[in-house]
Design a protein around this nucleic acid. Sequence first.
DNA 1: AGGCAGGCTTTTA
DNA 2: TAAAAGCCTGCC
Length: 280
Amino acid sequence: MTVTIDDDFDLDRIAQSGQCFRWESLPGGAYRIPFRSHCLHIAPLGGEGYELDCTAEEWEGVWKRYFALDENYRAIRAQADPGEDPFLWRACEAQKGLRILRQDPWEVTVSFIISQNRNIPAIKRSVELLCQSCGERLSDRRGGSYYAFPSPEGVAGLSDGDLAACRLGYRDRYVRAAALAACSGALDFDALAGDTEEDAMKALLGLYGVGVKVASCIALFGLHRLNAFPIDTWMRRALAAEYPGGYPFERYSPWNGVFQQYIFAYYRSGGREPPRDKMQ
DNA sequence: AGGCAGGCTTTTA
DNA sequence: TAAAAGCCTGCC
């Protein structure tokens, strides 16, 4: 089936934004996107049109929510004023098409625990190895196979050796601890959904191996708390260079996390003063 | 109590 | 070799 999407929506930008690690790039700007037990092939047709391999029901019931198409990113971007904050405006213009997905919170939790002190290719590799080691092998609609992201039980059941084979390094005990917490109910994403931002952050920070940065990423990308504002090395550089007087959080609430993502992507793509030496 | 240095696995460029 | 969407522990 085909659909038209009448808002900011750029598959390449989303794929490269560092919020999801399992999108598979295909020829022609298309992607294969696994989500829980679903898998979508989506190909741009030019303009606002896209070719999908799912039913209308699945598009309506699963993917529109996954892509957060109920939210209007043009309207969010419009809050950045070129005269008031030219840097933010440029970042939004340059990265137009980004969206914050509604991903599976468990997958996001593990992925961002794995992300610490690593670059994106290395993160993708470990996540994929983890999926292959204990995720369910499923078929997409084109006869291809893929591995679902494993359940907490699946991860908790891995031997030391199998977990080590995922090349998680010192993070392997963090991942195992998160799996045990999710199995025991100590980590309950449904409960977190009803919490205040502060309580949700507090609960996430209680996980072994989860600090402020990773907890913020889980809140933003896993719990869809669009005001959560992860600060990594890139954001630290961007804030120091562009907002020496402090970032105006009040001004952009409750969309701080969205603007954070524009700034992060803009900076990482070389839009501003890359780290002293070279870029990718 | 709260801040800071050092260490940690592995990959990437 | 330094840096990578950092965090934990021990010391002060």
